[in-house]
Design a protein around this nucleic acid. Structure first.
Lengths: 191, 191
DNA sequence: GAAATTTTCTAATAGTATTTAGATTTAGGG
DNA sequence: CCCTAAATCTAAATACTATTAGAAAATTTC
């Protein structure tokens, strides 16, 4: 790996941490630079503006989760059924959410306070992820894992809320994604 | 009501809206002032600093919900049982959350990015609200409304997440708190 | 190991933010 | 109406912030 790529990655990691903790406007380019052990001007060698760096962090936060969930669901053999698929999806979402907690949290915490033009460029990805879950839940309901009288749109929103909120209360390093996922699915779905 | 009190309230309402939309650091005293139809300096007649104004908004956001939930639960006659009490609590949380959406959302969105000294002064209230729910859920479980094998700490966190996330997806003016509460309780609890 | 390229730094610019001081206006009671 | 106190404003002090230009240092290439 090129040095340049490692530096770029270090800036992104540091920026994610700062954006998570201090918010979009509360994070100063200088904070990121000092925490990454360089001067503010050097950031501009890798990113054309603070906004572009922020957008990149947002995108990574969601992309990592989406890909992990998709992989996890596809890895479940069809014969295992939809309860197992849902469990895998929830566990993948939770474990990636926390493994890349600075990116995910930077995204979740700040999205609603992000300038409109940035929000709009992120919407495609967001909607795609929502759509992926929508279809997963429909399939699960058709397979009998969810009662027919459950409102899937609501269920999906409740599920996102429950999962994402874990960033606010799970103590760092204390994550047991499998356990959390098992309990959540146990509460929400029927085997 | 005194003019002075109305102006103070107008500043608070405007500040809550701005803090919700732009975050703690992203909100400028001048933004609040202009949106409230005055000059920035006038804010300082009512609040000693931006921080103090922000703290006040945070506190209101949580206090209103706590009080509404407590009242709602107490209004349920004991003979109705704990499913009804839980339903009342969820509905009160949701409807207050949205009725004072700027305050609640300012609190929920920004708490994690708030400077430490402010966070610490808010913790008492937060913990008290958490404790209130903890006891409510314990009582419900003992009454048989929640299975004995459900982990109540987790359930409480999932419940908070599901409820609070609604601020991010319920369209303004489209809230049906009773419906949302019914569906959420239907999914999480057993009658 | 010298030249070329990449990376990082120092220093300056131009624009904004919070907060204070003190002047000015507004509102209400007598 | 006038006087006082409350409320608001203008203007300025002081301190930050994102970004750029161009020099300096480090790294890579030959």
């Amino acid at each position: 790996m090129l040095k340049s790529d490692r530096t770029r990655q270090r800036i992104l990691d540091t920026a994610a941490r700062e954006f998570r903790q201090r918010g979009y406007a509360g994070t100063k380019v200088n904070d990121i630079a000092l925490a990454a052990d360089m001067r503010a001007a050097s950031i501009y060698y890798y990113f054309e503006s603070k906004d572009q760096l922020f957008e990149e962090v947002l995108k990574i936060g969601l992309t990592l989760i989406f890909e992990a969930v998709r992989r996890a669901v596809e890895a479940v053999p069809d014969k295992e059924g939809y309860y197992t698929k849902l469990l895998a999806a929830v566990e993948a979402h939770l474990s990636t959410l926390h493994e890349y907690g600075d990116y995910s949290s930077a995204n979740i915490r700040n999205f609603g306070q992000t300038p409109n033009d940035i929000q709009e460029r992120q919407l495609g990805l967001r909607n795609a992820y929502g759509e992926y879950w929508r279809e997963l839940l429909i399939a699960a309901q058709e397979a009998g894992v969810l009662r027919k009288d459950i409102n899937l749109s609501l269920l999906r929103m409740y599920l996102f809320g429950a999962m994402n909120w874990s960033l606010e209360w799970v103590k760092p390093g204390k994550l047991n994604a499998a356990g959390l996922a098992r309990e959540l699915c146990h509460t929400l779905f029927e085997k």
